[in-house]
Design a binder for these strands. Structure first.
Lengths: 222, 222
DNA sequence: GATTATATATGAGATATCTCATATTAAGGG
DNA sequence: CCCTTAATATGAGATATCTCATATATAATC
């Protein structure tokens, strides 16, 4: 991880970032930048969080390790997501694991000062409420719908959710962990997708037939 | 539904309620009371919400009807839950069905005025954020854990969650809808619970062995 | 380039869960 | 009290999904 104080920001970076710091407006002078490389741990579960982060670039995953040692991916994070919001609100008993999936850049402020300044900032609280409401809605929707549909549909939704353009490039192991199914069964369903011509292996991932998958996923995505 | 303006509150009611109106402090003079009877609809899906409610007594359920006509229970609400919070934040595309499971009493304020006054109220926004974070955490936890465990464990958690004391009295149809499983399979698992002596039918519901169920559910409940 | 670890892939048998069919009991309406 | 509807209950066969075993391909390491 590389930490870059605001004074050190290159001019062009600064201009790009300045607008993104709006949500930390009440403490704009305290903002700094962090850069993580692919695979790096951002938070180790159980540690005390001293930083409130906001992702401006890259993708990360939240995961937990179960008692039996296996791992579940709880959620994916990307541009516009907070890391540490639940600690900021003093609602999380124990922090979870957060790791960068791709290179990531985060805007950061010290947690203890955030608690002092941002809790007085009406605009921040409103936007945080909206952010949480949105997360909750999507999660609930995916949960309720997911229970009703079989893997075929959830997988289609997942492929669409995690891809930009028409290439899917997630690791199967990760997909299985997120969807909460066995690796074996995922592969089985994947095979069916291939046989139906809905996806096709390419050099850098899988091409997929957007129309077909959208039809399969249409009831699941909020 | 019975609507009771603040001036009409009986003295004793008033004293009991006064502290509960705190969250609407910024518009205390606008608060009124609504009383719903068991089974009554509080919100019909798709209708425009003109009221922000806060439950001070009773239980309700949020549900949606799927394209195939079947119903899913999305969540249960009780004392301390808001109804209309997502509309207040302008995040919900379409309201869901909300119905009283038992007699309910709600504190109410007009939505349009709430949007004016409460969005300026720092304390309200902070407590709303915490409320949403808590909801999101619990839901995520139940989802992630639920995927990993079979019905036996989720059912144990559900029985504990929906009961006060040692009597479980939910309708099986409702339980199946919430857990997202077939009625048939629920009954099958219920039978196993009975055979193991974990639950026993009584006149007004099921007695259950709290210790055993807590052991079964221990990894699922947040 | 050889070696190890990780990701992908497939098969076979076990089990959780679903669908459909049907019977009995409890609850609500005239 | 009869009638209708909703809730409870059980059986049998189908299918979705899991576990375990094993093989190959790809990526990381020395």
């Amino acid at each position: 991880m590389k930490r870059i104080r605001k004074e050190e920001w290159r001019q062009d970076v600064k201009e790009t970032l300045e607008p993104s710091t709006l949500m930390f407006r009440a403490m704009a002078d305290k903002v700094y930048l962090e850069e993580y490389t692919k695979g790096e741990a951002i938070i180790v579960s159980g540690e005390t969080l001293t930083t409130l982060r906001y992702i401006i670039e890259g993708k990360a995953k939240i995961s937990i390790v179960h008692e039996d040692g296996r791992e579940s991916i709880v959620d994916f994070l990307g541009k516009g997501d907070y890391i540490g919001d639940l600690t900021f609100l003093e609602m999380e008993k124990r922090t979870k694991d957060v790791a960068a999936i791709t290179d990531c850049r985060c805007l950061c402020v010290p947690m203890n000062e955030a608690i002092v300044f941002l809790r007085e900032d009406n605009d921040f609280l409103l936007s945080l409420s909206k952010y949480l409401a949105d997360k909750h809605l999507r999660r609930t929707w995916f949960y309720v719908k997911g229970l009703r549909y079989e893997l075929k549909n959830r997988l289609a939704a997942y492929i669409l959710m995690t891809s930009d353009g028409s290439i899917y490039y997630q690791k199967h192991t990760m997909t299985a962990e997120f969807l909460g199914i066995s690796y074996r069964h995922l592969l089985h369903t994947f095979k069916i997708f291939k046989e139906n011509g809905w996806i096709r292996k390419e050099k850098n991932g899988y091409w997929f037939d957007k129309e077909v998958l959208e039809e399969l996923a249409k009831d699941i995505i909020y």
